[in-house]
Design a protein around this nucleic acid. Structure first.
Lengths: 239, 239
DNA sequence: ACTCCAACGAAACATGGGTTAAAGCCGATC
DNA sequence: GATCGGCTTTAACCCATGTTTCGTTGGAGT
């Protein structure tokens, strides 16, 4: 599970062993449960074993902005290994299981095994790249593009993680939460989703489950270029 | 200069020596000059010796979103040490000087000297935290708050870098560029700046030079909480 | 089957910010 | 000290998105 780290950076057997030897506690968490909150002094890194989580911030006025969506196999708060105070909250989107790993332990392994440290650094760098894309998404695209972009990103990340086919998947979010991702209101998300549906870009069977009707067009509308995910070259191009 | 790395993480004499021994080429760059462009295969890390630079992305339709503002002493593209393809462009906002350091060399030092690697990782983590704040800024705050927030961040970062007092400083950006930072149009930036001025939060002597009239109020309007910059505790609280 | 509640859908209205365009200003350059 | 170009300012108009409200739906629990 933790081997996802090896995605970009080769790890030898000893490295893997060291990572697998990390002590952890598995914890079942309910939907909406907070893994940790903004301003917490954090003591653990958190790996998602199942379910989905979001990282978010609250601004004055109580509005919420989701800054990242995390899925199974991702380490949610690797940055907390080095930063003391959490600058955002992590909340479960669905129920699921997480593995909590003491930060000093992660720290130690990263320090003692340069390859592991490198792999972790890389992981956070890809995260940062996604943040940059989101700034552009929320700052400069209209509602239609923003939503299309998020749908594309989610589809592709699911596929890469081996969690489903982009052609049709379950989006673990309400329209309000999708609004918090895109900086829109739930009302406008609803309008826009209807529009995308009317234009045949997506279909929706049941709530929270979408089928992508026309991937190419969705990519075009969403101005989606997967380069920012820094996938390997041989990654499924996703016809 | 490069010692800024030691800000969060202690580096011993050998570490510092190793960093200072890095080979580099100093280059004078004109205003608007590109250090590198989106999709480039990057070969160097770039430290700003003087002047200001921005990191930006272009979205469909040609609109531009600035994702970061960089000032003297900052390493602009540390992520390129591990990521092959640039996911955004780096452009000089003013003329200035940069030091180019071959990425393999940075890589080597980071690998051989865990403390240095750690310090670099930390630097990119703080970067990422700023990205998260910007997502929230652009996604969930109105024009007034967005601009106030950016002014606060810039003031504080200038101060921390020892480059000026927040009470009054030169903002090295046109209103259009400030629009690219905040996801607004230059026209609306102008309107909003006028408003902030009318309300006594800022004063403007000459174009691109602002004086903060009421720091407390600006912080309040901008919903600015410096925690996301992960400054040290003993940092000037900025009365 | 019935009930309940969260999420979805939709309508009517309000507004912040975008668009376009034109006029003013300032600072560099000759 | 005239000229020029880039930046700022203003104005009028418009539209994408927000706000408010309420009715509908559908799945989970009993």
């Amino acid at each position: 599970m933790v081997r996802r780290l090896a995605y970009h950076h080769p790890l030898d057997a000893d490295d893997r062993a060291a990572v697998l030897a990390l002590p952890y506690v598995v914890k079942a968490v309910e939907q909406h449960h907070y893994i940790h909150r903004e301003r917490d002094r954090t003591s653990h890194a958190c790996l998602i074993l199942s379910g989905y989580a979001v990282r978010h911030k609250i601004v004055a006025g109580g509005h919420r902005q989701i800054v990242a969506i995390q899925m199974k196999g991702e380490i949610v708060d690797l940055q907390n290994v080095l930063l003391d105070i959490a600058d955002h909250s992590v909340q479960m989107l669905t129920r699921g299981e997480v593995a909590l790993i003491p930060r000093e332990e992660v720290n130690r392994v990263a320090f003692e095994r340069p390859s592991v440290g490198r792999a972790m650094w890389l992981d956070t760098l890809v995260d940062a790249s996604i943040f940059r894309e989101w700034i552009a998404n929320v700052g400069r695209r209209d509602a239609r593009s923003r939503i299309a972009h998020v749908l594309c990103e989610f589809a592709l990340r699911l596929k890469v993680a081996g969690l489903g086919e982009p052609s049709g998947y379950r989006l673990p979010m309400t329209q309000e939460q999708l609004g918090d991702v895109t900086g829109l209101t739930s009302v406008h998300v609803n309008r826009t989703l209807k529009l995308l549906e009317a234009d045949g870009l997506i279909e929706r069977l049941s709530p929270r489950s979408i089928v992508i009707g026309d991937w190419k067009k969705l990519v075009e509308v969403g101005d989606f270029d997967s380069a920012y995910l820094h996938l390997k070259e041989n990654e499924p191009a996703l016809s």
